[in-house]
């Protein structure tokens, strides 16, 4: 490891080139800025329906990033993240509907509630390894719609019918309609959540999570507080997914138990696997995939999107374990390598 880095560093110094090379980091930031600029002007050219879909894709990106913190980085398999999405959505909907809380204020509350619930679920989960955690969360996902329909809480949740919400209006100074406004609103939160996630995962906490995933005993020996980090990963992961759920409820303006069934959890898992495990940008690729791939398949049959999801999941494990993110990385590296000698001469 040490040897490798030193030779790499040596190669960099020795590399011929009169002009200062643009470092990969700068390239990355430039790329992100370009993508953000495109994301900002996109609403001008898209129909409201496409824009709505894109907004939802952003929502899923936040949720998948949350799932990635837990499953991708920390290695705790969750097949039940739809439950946290549902909690976030319901907290937002109940606050708006019953207590007249403004829509933007519901998002942090929903996130906080999910943080607490996720942390509490994470405590017993400490005792569950691998399969068993997958099994428990699988059961959670299947039981969620029933819990949401439960009569004793129907006063708040609206029972089977769910809750209808009003779409928030855009503030007058922005001169956009409400769909466009919701898109920018979601985009802003997505950027904030991704920056926070990036800061969290690249540093000490991120390394601790990965260490626990790859070798729990060694991590413990190195002084990582395994129990705390695992439970906290659960909490933060639930927070992300809950925030996504809250925005999802605001954007769709409707929540009902049957939209948070077991398939929602699998939906997020498909996004995670196809986008790329343990990759921040992967969350975005995955979200775009689960949002737009069904559009192409739905013409065949109502069942076709899910058949394709299943094939992609298995295919990703066999062919592309790093998902789209690793594919993009490989292509990008190849392009850079092809350009590099040309620049040197």
């Amino acid at each position: 490891m040490v040897n490798e880095t030193s030779t790499l560093a040596g190669a960099k110094i020795a590399a011929p080139g009169p002009r200062a090379q643009i470092s990969p980091r700068v390239w990355k930031i430039l790329g992100i800025l370009v993508i953000l600029a495109i994301a900002c002007i996109l609403p001008l050219g898209l129909s409201n329906y496409r824009l709505f879909q894109l907004t939802l894709a952003l929502v899923y990106a936040i949720a998948i990033l949350g799932l990635n913190i837990l499953t991708g980085y920390n290695g705790q398999i969750s097949l039940g993240h739809g439950a946290f999405y549902a909690i976030g959505a319901y907290v937002a909907a109940i606050l708006m509907n019953t207590y007249n809380v403004p829509y933007w204020a519901t998002i942090p509350i929903a996130g906080f509630v999910c943080l607490v619930v996720g942390f509490l679920f994470g405590l017993p989960a400490l005792r569950l390894e691998g399969h068993y955690l997958a099994l428990a969360t699988f059961a959670l996902a299947v039981a969620t719609p029933q819990l949401l329909k439960y009569k004793a809480i129907a006063n708040w949740t609206g029972g089977v019918e769910g809750i209808n919400l009003l779409k928030p209006d855009a503030p007058a100074w922005m001169h956009v309609d409400s769909d466009q406004y919701l898109y920018y609103f979601t985009l802003a939160i997505t950027v904030v959540m991704f920056v926070i996630g990036w800061n969290l995962l690249r540093g000490r906490v991120g390394r601790a999570l990965v260490a626990i995933r790859d070798h729990p005993v060694a991590a413990e020996a190195m002084g990582v507080n395994t129990a705390y980090h695992k439970a906290m990963a659960f909490g933060v992961s639930a927070l992300y997914t809950g925030v996504a759920g809250a925005i999802g409820a605001i954007v769709v303006a409707y929540v009902a138990p049957d939209s948070f069934d077991f398939l929602l959890s699998i939906f997020l898992l498909v996004g995670l696997v196809v986008g790329g495990l343990a990759s921040i940008s992967g969350a975005i690729y995955g979200a775009l995939f689960i949002q737009f791939a069904p559009n192409f398949a739905a013409d065949l049959s109502k069942a076709a999107p899910w058949a394709i999801f299943g094939i992609f999941m298995i295919g990703a494990v066999y062919v592309m374990p790093g998902g789209v993110a690793s594919f993009v990385q490989i292509v990008w590296d190849r392009i850079r390598r092809m350009l590099a000698p040309a620049r040197g001469t």
Binding site: L79, I266, I311
Partner: peptide, 12 residues
């Protein structure tokens, strides 16, 4: 993930 993939494929 492969198990879940098989599940989803059979279901659909």
């Amino acid at each position: 993930i492969v198990f879940i993939g098989v599940l989803v494929i059979f279901n659909s």
